[in-house]
Design a protein around this nucleic acid. Structure first.
Length: 381
DNA sequence: GATTCACATCCCTGTCGGCA
DNA sequence: TGCCGACAGGGATGTGAATC
């Protein structure tokens, strides 16, 4: 059985999983939001950005550091990287033990202030993109690559504090009893505000209705052009003056029957589309295919993910082990394999709403181009 | 040293009611 | 009917104290 609409699917989750909650629909909606985040995160990993991704980092507004926003996923330049293996290792893996292991392989980290964290718990729950050290300009994350019995392979990455791209996920359900909707779109506007305030490349409206882009250069000049043209120029640039504070902003919203048709995008969708550099729609078909294959009609390759999801909810759950941050180790492995094995199918789950006539492939190419810049040179002022 | 718990804070999602 | 402010429940995360 496949579900055409996410609303129908949400109702199935209400009955089958969230029957214990006071507000069953709200709990199911929250869980669907978590699934959109997980699809985005594991998608980014499959695209090759695992070592670049940080989760829920505070990001200051451009030129206004007094206000920061926690950003769901941010992609940062990798300044240093270290692969390592732990043999005959007893869990839990804490940041303290990790630092001792780094000392043993001669990886310098004294410039980073230690941050306590649990990389992998005794119960086999890992922390994705676990941050365990920070400095004014950089921070350090670790990923668990492989595990066999008591042996673990890890990758430690020192990332520049300033990201080159951010991703924000939003999901909005339909309000019961309304024909047009949704009303709760006000929440999605919060994401739009963040998208418009963090990057040095800012949007202005021309009198003819077109959107222009403007960057305030270090020499005091305002450099402006039609937005799409300037965006393309910045992504292709090697000039530190335009790249240093630039952030490519990407929104990922889950599909909703009332939000748009091929001919008509409603007002709220237009707000989002003109706020992010890229706005991706995770379609009903995509989200329902993932939920069906993982939960409702589970395929063997996702069994461990299903178990982790079901263990995470219910009146007697002992902590969530299926979120973008905390993930069951077995579930993590099957998700990584699934997203790597079905790249093409998963890309087809997304519609590109903005920019017009572009594809997900182009977004990947832009992210790779940004990642490949000589950041150590660009970030030197 | 690791784990558990309480608490605070923030974010996500859904709904209600007042107003024009 | 559309818009918007306000509120509420659920959940994620960080911190620090207590406990194992």
């Amino acid at each position: 059985m496949s579900y055409e609409s996410v609303d129908a699917l949400q109702k199935v989750l209400v009955e089958s999983v969230f029957h214990y909650a006071q507000d069953r629909k709200k709990a199911a909606g929250r869980a669907l939001g978590t699934l959109v985040e997980i699809i985005t995160y594991y998608g980014l990993k499959a695209w090759g950005f695992r070592d670049n991704v940080a989760i829920e980092r505070p990001l200051p507004e451009y030129g206004n550091p007094a206000i920061t926003h926690n950003v769901e996923f941010s992609l940062h330049p990798v300044l240093r990287r270290q692969s390592m293996k732990l043999q005959r290792f007893a869990l839990p893996l804490t940041s303290k033990k990790l630092r001792a292991a780094l000392d043993a392989v001669g990886f310098a980290h004294s410039d980073l202030t230690a941050k306590a964290a649990q990389v992998l718990s005794k119960q086999g729950v890992l922390r994705n993109a676990c941050t365990f050290g920070e400095s004014p300009n950089a921070f350090c994350i670790v990923s668990v690559d492989e595990n066999e019995e008591d042996r673990y392979a890890l990758t430690v990455s020192v990332l520049s504090r300033h990201p080159f791209a951010i991703f924000e996920c939003k999901r909005v359900g339909i309000e019961e009893g309304t024909k047009k909707g949704p009303q709760s779109i006000e929440k999605a506007k919060q994401g739009a505000y963040v998208a418009r305030t963090v990057s040095s490349l800012q949007k202005i409206r021309y009198s003819d209705g077109q959107i222009g882009g403007v960057i305030h250069l270090p020499n005091g000049r305002l450099y402006h052009k039609p937005y799409d043209e300037l965006l393309e120029e910045v992504v292709a640039s090697r000039d530190g003056a335009v790249l240093r504070d630039f952030i490519l902003t990407v929104g990922v919203v889950s599909n909703h029957g009332n939000w748009f048709t091929d001919k008509d995008h409603n007002k709220e969708l237009k707000v989002l589309a003109q706020s992010y550099d890229w706005l991706l729609f995770l379609t009903d078909r995509g989200l329902s295919e993932f939920v069906s294959e993982m939960l409702l009609k589970p395929t063997p390759e996702l069994t461990d993910a299903r178990e982790a999801f079901l263990k995470s909810y219910g009146p007697e759950n002992s902590g969530n082990r299926f979120t973008k941050v905390k993930m069951d180790m077995k579930a993590d492995l099957v998700l990584r394999n699934y997203f790597a094995a079905h790249k093409k199918k998963i890309e087809s789950w997304f519609n590109v709403i903005a920019p017009a006539k572009r594809t997900v492939k182009t977004l990947q190419a832009e992210l790779r181009a940004l990642n490949d810049k000589d950041w150590s040179k660009i970030l030197k002022k």
